[in-house]
Design a protein around this nucleic acid. Structure first.
Lengths: 339, 339
DNA sequence: CTGTTAGCGCATTCAA
DNA sequence: TTGAATGCGCTAACAG
């Protein structure tokens, strides 16, 4: 403000800029013109301290290089900006420690609320005190995709079970008899839920649930080797449901190398509609997750909580449905009467 | 601090926490223990205002969904965190207006320095006043990848010309005679530089430079249609250099559909070592850009400038070299004697 | 209609 | 060795 003292006091300027009714039109005009001319902007730092809020929200995600997360971020950014908020992104690298560090930092007044997708290591470890502390400190939190049941907060998630069901059901419908699943270890919530959908679909059909066809990938080991085992079975699978597109792409590659034709000999279906799915050849049929929508829902819930004055604020869990995107890696449905 | 007044004054506490020599050991111990017990953390907002710095740096990129940018961000984040800085990410969506908005916001005390890759629209428009203003305001700026020559600041860039040369030269070496290039409109600096490398390589060989083989993709139109034209030439190309992996992937798809064998009939080489390149089949030979390294260099330059007291600070431009990654989409080199 | 004051939370003089 | 005062830039309450 300082320099503005070309004739009036500092607070007069402040009021004029805020169009206060208690300042004469003439002075307001002059001051506004002056401010505009010099591109005056109230200092954010001072405002932050004064208002005890920063108009920025924090996001903690495991990895920014995952296409799905970038879609979510885009969704968040878009509506956040619209509402005058900025976005601060942190990566936990799937590490518990980095997640805690990031939270501490964000919680210290840097941010008005936090959106997080839980690190794998945190899920594995099961220590959620940092989330509880955050909530106790009154900082709004929303979890998306990888969420913790026992934490009471707003949540946005993919209907993973349904997605897994949809995918598997489709493989059944196109005539696959031996359907394998490439999934994650049990502690990764989303993988496990998708597997649940897979199992439901198999059980609802007249196909047997075959343990040999369930492959839980341990990412600390060589992924390719683990998938290859599936192809050394005496009875090869004729359908594969992979809980992410990387596993699906690797499976396609191995299948092709083994001389199998996709989709004639084996149909492959992934999860998440990323770049790989679109641009691989054959292009990959997949379960679309609508990351953008998830991001939007998440930020809407968060801003809603931030703005809310209610003492008995009710947390909500929004489920974002999945869609099947059929491309070239799965056989065409023979009779469109099948359901 | 307030609550700490369990026996001493507010400033004593402040000093004790900073391990000031002018406080007795005993009191320091007690206060520190107390602070630790209650997880006391000095409020960032107050510190920011007091110190006139935020220990966070801003990044403005065109699109977060591009794999290359996520690699750069990862690189930046990593070393920023190490040095105690946080990172605020904004997207310009390749729009001039959003770029300016983001800069204004970041420049207003929110951030100690800015790293940017220029929006396409800004390059097209040629209006760089927002960058000049930023620099005049004394806010450190570093540009990476898509940079503006006439702006005087630290820069990090890919050796695009060399990358284009390397790629094209390799296609020549494996015996391609009619090498096409899929590039961007002229105003996109990186595309144009890669094309320059392409032209250099062609001119250095005994192949003719054929205008028909240079395709400038206009992303406002259907990309696929524009690439298809290449395949309706009477003389088909036997090699394609694409300035990004999307164009390369689309070209592969079209070629396959036209019944061409990759790499026997046509070799295809992309730019940027993203997921598509790794997981497409055939996997894509490509020019690796080392996004991580670029990010690291960028943040190092920025922090260097922030810390620098020198009045005659010299700006630098770091060039990150590219590497050829040979996979399945290009023919093998016949004699490894060729250079 | 305009100006003065106080305080957001901290660290840094300077005085005791 | 400790504490009181000041200011970072701003706004809202209160005075004039």
């Amino acid at each position: 403000m300082i320099a503005k003292e070309f004739d009036v006091s500092i607070s007069t300027v402040s009021k004029a800029l805020k169009d206060s009714h208690e300042i004469s039109e003439e002075v307001k005009e002059r001051i506004k013109a002056f401010a505009k001319y010099y591109h005056y902007k109230p200092n954010s730092l001072a405002l932050n301290l004064r208002n005890q809020k920063t108009k920025t929200i924090g996001i903690i995600i495991p990895q920014i290089v995952h296409h799905f997360f970038t879609k979510v971020i885009s969704g968040i950014e878009h509506v956040a900006n619209e509402k005058g908020y900025n976005v601060m992104i942190c990566m936990s690298m799937d590490s518990y420690e980095k997640e805690v560090l990031n939270m501490d930092m964000l919680a210290n007044g840097v941010v008005d609320g936090i959106i997080v997708s839980v690190a794998k290591e945190t899920e594995e470890k099961g220590d959620y005190t940092h989330f509880k502390d955050l909530i106790n400190n009154g900082i709004p939190l929303v979890m998306f995709d990888r969420v913790i049941d026992e934490i009471n907060c707003n949540k946005v998630l993919t209907n993973d079970v349904d997605g897994g069901y949809l995918a598997t059901k489709h493989l059944i419908n196109i005539g696959c008899k031996r359907i394998a699943i490439l999934t994650t270890p049990d502690y990764v919530s989303v993988g496990t839920l998708r597997k649940e959908g897979y199992e439901n679909a198999i059980n609802n059909s007249n196909l047997p649930l075959n343990k040999n066809l369930i492959v839980k990938i341990d990412e600390k080991l060589e992924i390719e080797e683990q998938i290859k085992k599936l192809f050394s079975l005496k009875n090869l699978p004729d359908g594969i449901f992979a809980v992410n597109e990387i596993y699906a792409a690797i499976a396609m590659k191995i299948a092709t190398k083994k001389g199998l034709k996709i989709p004639e000999d084996i149909s492959i279906l992934g999860f998440t509609d990323g770049l790989i799915s679109q641009f691989s050849s054959p292009s990959l049929s997949t379960v679309a997750q609508h990351g953008n929508t998830m991001g939007q829902k998440a930020i809407e819930l968060l801003l809603n909580e931030i703005d809310s004055q209610e003492t008995d604020y009710q947390f909500r869990t929004k489920i974002v449905e999945t869609d099947l995107i059929l491309r070239e890696s799965t056989k065409k449905l023979k009779y469109n009467s099948i359901k």
